[in-house]
Simulated assay, not measured.
Amino acid sequence: MSVRIGRSLIGPGNPVYVIGEIGLNHNGDVEIAKRLIDVAVESGAQAVKFQKRTPEIATPEHMRDVLRETPWGTMTYLEYRHRVEFGEAEYLEIASYAMRAGVDWFASPWDVPSVAFLEGLDVVAHKVASASITDLELLDALAATGKPIILSTGMSTIEEIDRAVDRLDRDRLVLMHATSSYPMPEHEANLRMIQTLGSRYPGVPIGYSGHERGLQISLAAVALGAVAVERHITLDRAMWGSDQAASLEPQGFDHLVRDIRIIGDAMGDGVKRVFPGEEAPRAKLRRVPA
Rank of each mutant, 00 (worst) to 15 (best):
M1A: 13
S2N: 09
S2G: 01
S2D: 06
V3M: 05
V3N: 02
R4Y: 07
R4G: 07
I5F: 02
I5M: 06
I5V: 14
G13V: 10
G13A: 10
P15C: 06
V16P: 03
V16M: 05
Y17T: 01
V18Y: 00
V18S: 07
I19K: 00
E21M: 06
E21K: 01
E21N: 03
I22T: 06
L24W: 08
H26Q: 10
D29W: 05
A33I: 00
R35E: 14
V39M: 04
V41G: 02
V41H: 06
E42N: 15
G44H: 04
A45K: 03
A45T: 05
A45D: 01
A47W: 02
V48L: 08
K49C: 01
K52P: 05
P55I: 04
P60V: 11
P60T: 11
E61K: 08
R64I: 05
V66Q: 14
G73V: 09
T74H: 02
T76K: 02
T76C: 06
L78G: 02
E79P: 00
Y80Q: 06
Y80S: 00
G87Q: 14
E88W: 12
E90P: 02
E90L: 07
L92M: 14
E93T: 13
S96D: 15
Y97F: 12
A98S: 08
A101S: 09
W105G: 01
F106C: 00
S108K: 04
P109R: 04
W110C: 06
D111P: 01
D111E: 08
P113M: 08
D122T: 09
D122C: 11
V123N: 00
H126L: 14
H126V: 09
K127H: 11
A129W: 00
A131F: 11
I133Y: 03
E137A: 15
I149T: 06
I150H: 03
S152K: 00
T157R: 08
I158R: 13
E159Y: 12
I161Q: 03
D166N: 14
L175F: 07
L175K: 00
S180F: 09
M184F: 05
E186S: 13
N190C: 10
N190A: 14
M193P: 00
M193D: 03
Q195I: 05
Q195S: 13
L197W: 07
G198V: 02
S199R: 13
S199K: 13
R200W: 06
V204A: 04
P205M: 01
Y208A: 05
S209W: 05
G210K: 02
L215Y: 03
S218D: 09
A220K: 04
A221H: 00
H232R: 10
L235R: 04
L235C: 04
D236Q: 13
A238N: 09
S242E: 14
E249P: 07
D254R: 14
D254H: 10
H255D: 15
H255C: 09
R261A: 09
D265K: 15
M267Y: 08
M267R: 11
G268F: 11
G268L: 12
R273I: 14
F275A: 13
F275I: 10
E279N: 11
R282W: 12
A283C: 07
A283F: 13
V288P: 02
V288S: 13
P289A: 15
A290W: 14
A290D: 12
